[in-house]
Amino acid sequence: MADLATYILTASGLVFFIAGTVGLIRFPDTFSRLHALTKADNLGLGLIAGGVAFQTETWAQLAMLTLIWVLALLAAGTVAQLVARAALSTPEQK
């Protein structure tokens, strides 16, 4: 049962990662690429962390998985804002 949950959650996480990567490659400008990268990939990471959470043995491992996801969310959100602002001030850069 736990294995099944892991399979389903990590597989759907991978789908979001693939979608995010396709967006990163295919979208035309920095802002839409950031949109693909941060939103889809963070959801994918959350789903993968949720899937792996079914394999943890202790609460400490679960807490660390959660911490990893929260820190990645925080860093991705911040970096996306900074990259977007830098892209606004130098529009011609690809």
Binding site: L71, A75, Q81, L82
Partner: peptide, 9 residues
């Protein structure tokens, strides 16, 4: 955002 991040991290 950077200032907030610098406080949380």
């Amino acid at each position: 955002v950077l200032a907030s991040f610098g406080r949380i991290l």
